[in-house]
Design a protein around this nucleic acid. Sequence first.
DNA 1: GAACAAAGTTGACACTGTCAAGATTGGGTC
DNA 2: GACCCAATCTTGACAGTGTCAACTTTGTTC
Lengths: 205, 205
Amino acid sequence: MSDSTYHHGHLREALLDAAVAAVHEEGPSGLGIRSLARRVGVSHNAAYRHFADLDDLVTAVSERVMEQLLSAMQARLDEVPASEPTLRARRRLAVTGRAYVEYAVSEPGLFRLALGSLSVSEPLRLLGRLLDELVEVGFLESEARVDSELTCWSAVHGFSILCIDGPLRHLAPAERAAALNRVLVAIDRSYGATTGSPTSPSDIT
Amino acid sequence: MSDSTYHHGHLREALLDAAVAAVHEEGPSGLGIRSLARRVGVSHNAAYRHFADLDDLVTAVSERVMEQLLSAMQARLDEVPASEPTLRARRRLAVTGRAYVEYAVSEPGLFRLALGSLSVSEPLRLLGRLLDELVEVGFLESEARVDSELTCWSAVHGFSILCIDGPLRHLAPAERAAALNRVLVAIDRSYGATTGSPTSPSDIT
DNA sequence: GAACAAAGTTGACACTGTCAAGATTGGGTC
DNA sequence: GACCCAATCTTGACAGTGTCAACTTTGTTC
């Protein structure tokens, strides 16, 4: 790898890194072909060799952010200790929702960017698996399983929006956590309502 | 009112009208100081006498859209026929949620614009009143009332996003309506779960 | 009628995304 | 080892944008 500016070698990756940093610092509007090129130290529209378009670049950044979000959820998921199977499945769902919201709050710019222009099919697939677990374990009736990822994802995503630029914007972290717990308990209750679950909802927080 | 271009008279309102039309046709990115001025037939940055800033203009448009959304919900609300009080209160809540989603789907650009930059405190207030009704009527326990607007608004808003640019994007209207019904029933069930309501959830659709 | 403030216009500047054409480089082939 | 080529980056240009400053027009008020 020479010092010459030509043939940077990893321009695409460097641009994506810079894009994540820019959105982290300045929000989604900080993303620009030229400003990114400046940040990487390359001349304007060098990026056009790697991205067709500003939209194309934004899409690529979104995919990267979505991967971060997914792995953050996955990490939390794996930390849930073994216990009574039903309780464990319910906790796995709750923990995933909490990870989602916490990512949104800690990285509002990246979250807005990713959710504005990309399909959320990956997180929905993960959610689907968790709900299947709830059915296998007998907590969620298979009839109520239909489209249940919609209510679950909607609730968690909507709560994130309220925290980022809604009325919950200036809530203290502790109060936000309390409100989030109420939302997660409501989801849990809504799924277990049909079976009259014996375990208290507060067990999942 | 003279024919002269000077002293347009209603420039502010004309600009807001044009803004709504532009976003309706071209999406949020169709909003621009200059393009709006062109649309109204006035020279560029005449808008600066009425709006400090592009952000200021966007905020004003958002408020206008939010008013449209609110009155759309209110209209549906008033159409719910008198019946058994509990059923009526539940239906009023469901109908409001449906109006919210239908507005989002029918005006995705305006919906995105308004929800991206404005607080949703007005709709939340309306929602709060509906939930108070559910408490008065004995369907929702007052203990579960705390922050219950969060779960409700979150679910409906999240569903809207899924319909606009999520995996539900290309769903046929009938299927979308069916999925929406399931979400609304889930909310209803989650609220009535603690009391063991005697009425079937399907009554509210 | 003169003075004044409000409303619109004109001109300029820096910035943006994007296209076209040229310069530079490393890898493969004879 | 020299040569060509394709990939990569640069330079230059164009239209479009938001915004500031200075100017012009207009309706109102004393």
